[in-house]
Design a binder for these strands. Structure first.
Lengths: 188, 188
DNA sequence: ACCTGAACACCGTTCAAGT
DNA sequence: ACCTGAACACCGTTCAAGT
């Protein structure tokens, strides 16, 4: 399909030449269509980058939802570790794409994108945590928000710092320790 | 000074009209100089944005260093809370500028910028944590890395999510709980 | 219905000319 | 020494013309 070819071309240009070289001409050329065709599917360049990120976040949200369903009813410890594992893996298995998208999304007004993603994922994780065999929170949505903000933020920052494999392993383990310790603290 | 006027103009254009409207012409106009003048001080537009971010990170690093010096010799708990407080305040007191810079820096290859900042700040925090009255880490640099990555990442993610004041207060408190609990866990 | 690509407005950058 | 701004190459976007 033409749209798929354009998406694929966008990722390739982003990976090969970076954000600055992401021109409509180059994307169209690589996708094997003319610029005009691109504008039939996307009203402008921003919309293309936006759609690409929306597509990625949708896939990410779906994976998190799967993990949340799998962990339903488990104890809190394994639960939060599974969430960390899923998010971290999803982000790192194609680290280059993750980086490229982080950079591309910054240019656009992505509030709607972030909120749609956050709402969907928050729903899944909140439900998961509520189902825990040892769940007994003073404030479920607060705990959920704290956990996911810390987890997603840490993964992102780990990316920016370009940590070594060793450092990533240690950090991931420490993040799990932190979240487990926090959960022990906020469970009544 | 001309350079200062250009920096100031850049921030203003960024705040008023966003990243897309940040054109060399507009910046020059607002700074009261011609485009040519801008190019005497910065080789290109990227360099201008880069320099603006470098300037900001330098000021941020200086503030963190001050906190680290102030906390020297204190117990770990208050120490990590002071670090969280300083970083969070520095980022939120001019939230609009923080946001604008987050967005502007994404476009450029900022590895050098990030690393220079990270190295400098890591040195300050590692020294602080080592000086704690109750410091006794199995692995000081690992603990330091985990703490700063989690803290900086959480603040950044809190920004992206555009949390309410209430949520921010709760999250900050929970982050402190997490870091304290983690420190209790990794101290031998 | 879907595609093409020349044409237009605008942006980043340069450089001969000004003080 | 520092500044100006018209000029140039290139990019995002459009639209009349093609299949």
């Amino acid at each position: 399909m033409t749209v798929e070819a354009i998406f694929e071309a966008t990722i390739q240009v982003l990976l090969r030449d970076g954000m600055n070289a992401l021109t409509t001409t180059r994307v169209a050329e690589r996708a094997g269509v003319s610029v005009g065709t691109m504008y039939q599917y996307f009203p402008n360049k921003q919309a293309l980058v936006y759609a690409l990120n929306a597509r990625y976040l949708d896939a990410l949200a779906a994976r998190i939802e799967v993990t949340c369903q799998e962990q339903s009813g488990a104890p809190l410890g394994p639960m939060v570790e599974a969430l960390i594992e899923t998010y971290w893996t999803a982000k790192t298995e194609r680290a280059d794409i993750t980086q490229a998208l982080y950079r591309s999304v910054a240019e656009l007004n992505n509030d709607a994108l972030i909120h749609a993603f956050a709402d969907r994922v928050d729903r899944a994780t909140t439900e998961m945590f509520s189902s825990a065999s040892d769940a007994n929170f003073a404030d479920t949505s607060r705990t959920n928000l704290s956990l996911v903000t810390v987890i997603y933020g840490t993964v992102r920052n780990a990316f920016e710092r370009a940590l070594s494999e060793r450092e990533v392993t240690d950090l991931k383990q420490d993040l799990k320790t932190m979240c487990r310790a926090y959960l022990a603290n906020v469970t009544v």
